[in-house]
């Protein structure tokens, strides 16, 4: 997989005349978070939002700007992330909800839509009624991960006990942007069953 830089505290609206510090995290080609300084922030419309290279933004005038961060990965390639921000009356973020769909990457059944919502220090992971997973495997576990191919460095949500229908998990002490994928994995046999990207 490709290295990724992720804006971890995106906002939708920046108050006119106020400041905001954007932050990023870098994940290497294995999905492992790595301390990698040197990310350079920029704005495609400095007349609306100006930003210093180290991420301090200011709402200059009513309008919109695409805020970007770019960093050079360990192997020399440029990695980039961007987010559209408007200038308005208040600083706000509606980015507290991510959603996705499970897909099977094996011959075992896995499907269904899900959402992940930040509620304070907790993330509520909710599966829709169309969720279905094979119950034929012993030891099927769910993980949050930045590498959908591995449970290495992943957060183990727990053993899957519901195989059909709507249900939720309440996950303490994580942030909505800590992980990029849901991963279903048969722990005893080390078999990946499927995944779903948090979009």
């Amino acid at each position: 997989m490709d290295p990724e830089v992720r804006i971890v505290n995106p906002i939708d609206t920046l108050a006119l005349g106020s400041n905001y510090e954007f932050l990023y995290r870098y994940f290497d080609q294995t999905g492992l978070e790595t301390e990698l300084p040197g990310g350079i922030w920029s704005s495609d419309n400095p007349s609306a939002i100006s930003i210093t290279t180290d991420g301090f933004a200011t709402g200059v005038s009513i309008g919109s700007a695409l805020i970007s961060v770019q960093i050079q990965s360990e192997n020399g390639s440029d990695v980039r992330a961007e987010h559209l921000v408007h200038v308005g009356a208040t600083t706000s973020s509606t980015n507290t909800l991510r959603k996705g769909s499970l897909r099977s990457t094996s011959s075992y059944k896995l499907q269904g839509d899900f959402t992940a919502e930040q509620m304070g220090s907790m993330v509520i992971l909710s599966f829709e009624a169309n969720y279905e997973a094979s119950s034929s495997l012993p030891g099927l576990y769910a993980y949050l991960t930045n590498n959908p191919n591995s449970v290495n460095n992943a957060f183990e949500i727990g053993a899957v006990e519901i195989f059909k229908g709507a249900h939720t998990y309440e996950i303490e002490n994580i942030s909505l942007n800590d992980y990029s994928h849901l991963l279903y994995y048969c722990k005893p046999f080390r078999v990946k069953v499927g995944d779903g990207e948090l979009e």
Binding site: S135, S136, L137, P138, G139, L140, A159, V160, F163, K187, P188, F189
Partner: peptide, 15 residues
């Protein structure tokens, strides 16, 4: 029982 119900970590799957 389904393999998932017999034992969560058992390699002796059922069926």
């Amino acid at each position: 029982k389904e393999p998932s119900e017999v034992s969560s970590a058992s390699i002796f799957s059922n069926n």
